[in-house]
């Protein structure tokens, strides 16, 4: 199953092609948001993250579906 992970700010990945904020990820059907975080080897406590699936805040145990867009963010605000 393929989902798209959107990695914000300090969660972006250094790759040979440069810094990447968007990754297409293959995961097992039935995987949760928490499984995706583990799969991406993000070393921050999940509690620090603000997570959204298809534009809506999602809990760690939400089951993902094919073609979901998952935003992984550090919850800032202001401006």
């Amino acid at each position: 199953m393929k989902v798209t992970a959107h990695l914000h700010t300090i969660l972006q990945r250094h790759t040979p092609e440069g810094l990447k904020g968007r990754l297409d990820v293959n995961i097992q059907p039935g995987s949760t948001v928490e499984d995706l975080i583990k799969h991406l080897e993000i070393d921050l406590e999940p509690d620090y993250l603000l997570l959204a699936v298809n534009g809506r805040v999602a809990p760690l145990d939400q089951v993902l579906e094919q073609a979901d867009h998952v935003n992984l963010m550090l919850p800032i605000s202001g401006g």
Partner: peptide, 17 residues
């Protein structure tokens, strides 16, 4: 960790959020 986000990206880190 948010302090690092503000230091590196400033409030402009909000745009994509």
């Amino acid at each position: 960790p948010q302090t690092q986000v503000y230091a590196e990206y400033g409030t402009a880190g909000m745009t994509k959020i």
